[in-house]
């Protein structure tokens, strides 16, 4: 059987099983176990209605419990044990070992740098573009083109930007546009951008900003359009200039949306892995936590320290998690 046919068969069987679970479980409930007929009809209907939500929820709840909830606790456990000593409890030794590694501190400081720069610049660019395109007849085309990098994988984006940063020896034609411009305007030797410590972090961040700006733009653009026109008209009548309208009237009214965009991008930044993995793999002082963790888990094969690093990421996410839950509960009420 060709791989394609095999794939199609597996897809049909897998999806078919899922569909038939829902269909059969409901059929059994309604027709076999608690039929809506006979002498206990009322009791049966009530019981069936009490059970049915759980039939609907069962696969999702199991998947969430096994694939997201359980791993959080298991990772915590793994970070406190040592695999090489027959799974002995070693307290915080993994964390101590991690804190003694300069590479960890490099990853943490770089991650904090990413957290400062990427959400800020993506949101600012997104807001700027949303405002500029709002007035243009070709604004939707422009937005769609700036939004496009959202569809491109981090790995694809890494290749795209590696070409931008490409460096050829001095004296030959530069094929990376950054070096072409740099040598043309400064006359200096071409730079191998990705190996310049400290600054190379920013060259990597550019890739994520390039991708996330479209996301910020789409959401902020919708928020800008939701601003009641009366407030703007009143400002125009009062003789406010466009800058004043933007900063004093529009921005204050969409603050909550800006915060949501900011935090969403922050969470993305905390998990950033592919870009660093594909472009520098953490060399030249560009390590970040997610890649450091991957390195520990799968290259050094050190599950203890790897799990400890994962817990640090979890710790950084936790405030946002709590904030999200509080907001959601407010909404439900």
């Amino acid at each position: 059987m060709s791989p394609l046919m095999q794939g199609v068969t597996i897809i049909v069987v897998g999806v078919g099983l899922c569909v038939s679970y829902f269909f059969l479980s409901n059929w059994l409930l309604d027709r076999v176990f608690l039929p809506a007929r006979g002498q206990h009809i009322d009791r049966n209907i009530n019981r069936a209605n009490a059970i049915r939500p759980w039939l609907f929820l069962l696969p999702a709840v199991i998947a969430l419990a096994v694939y997201l909830a359980y791993p959080v606790f298991e990772t915590l456990r793994l970070s406190l044990f040592d695999r090489d000593q027959g799974n002995a409890f070693i307290g915080l030794a993994n964390y101590q070992q991690m804190f003694s590694e300069p590479k960890f501190w490099e990853a943490l400081t770089n991650n904090l740098l990413w957290l400062l720069v990427v959400p800020a610049l993506s949101t600012v660019f997104g807001l700027l573009i949303a405002q500029l395109t709002d007035r243009l007849w070709w604004g939707n085309i422009a937005k769609s083109l700036i939004f496009m990098p959202m569809a491109i994988s981090f790995v694809g984006a890494a290749v795209i930007w590696k070409l931008v940063y490409d460096a050829r020896p001095a004296g030959t034609e530069q094929i990376g546009v950054l070096n072409a411009l740099y040598t043309f305007f400064s006359g200096a030797e071409p730079q191998v951008w990705l190996t310049l410590p400290f600054w190379n972090n920013f060259f990597l961040m550019v890739v994520l900003i390039w991708i996330q700006t479209g996301f910020a733009m789409v959401i902020l653009s919708a928020a800008l359009r939701g601003i009641p026109e009366e407030t703007i008209e009143a400002a125009v009548v009062d003789g406010a200039n466009p800058l004043q309208i933007f900063f004093r009237i529009k921005v204050p009214q969409i603050t909550s949306t800006i915060v949501v965009v900011w935090t969403t991008i922050t969470i993305t930044v905390l998990k950033v892995f592919d870009i660093v993995f594909a472009m520098t793999n953490g060399q030249w002082e560009t390590q970040v936590l997610a890649n450091y963790m991957f390195d520990k888990l799968f290259r050094a094969n050190d599950w203890g320290v790897g799990s400890a690093a994962a817990m640090i990421i979890m710790l950084l996410v936790t405030p946002l998690l709590i904030w999200n839950v509080i907001n959601a509960r407010k909404e439900l009420k």
Binding site: L68, G306, L321
Partner: peptide
């Protein structure tokens, strides 16, 4: 609430377990 909380759990934590 649990679904909202799980929205932001980094999948990095899930790899080894």
């Amino acid at each position: 609430a649990a679904v909202v909380a799980l929205l932001v759990v980094p999948l990095q934590l899930a790899l080894i377990p």
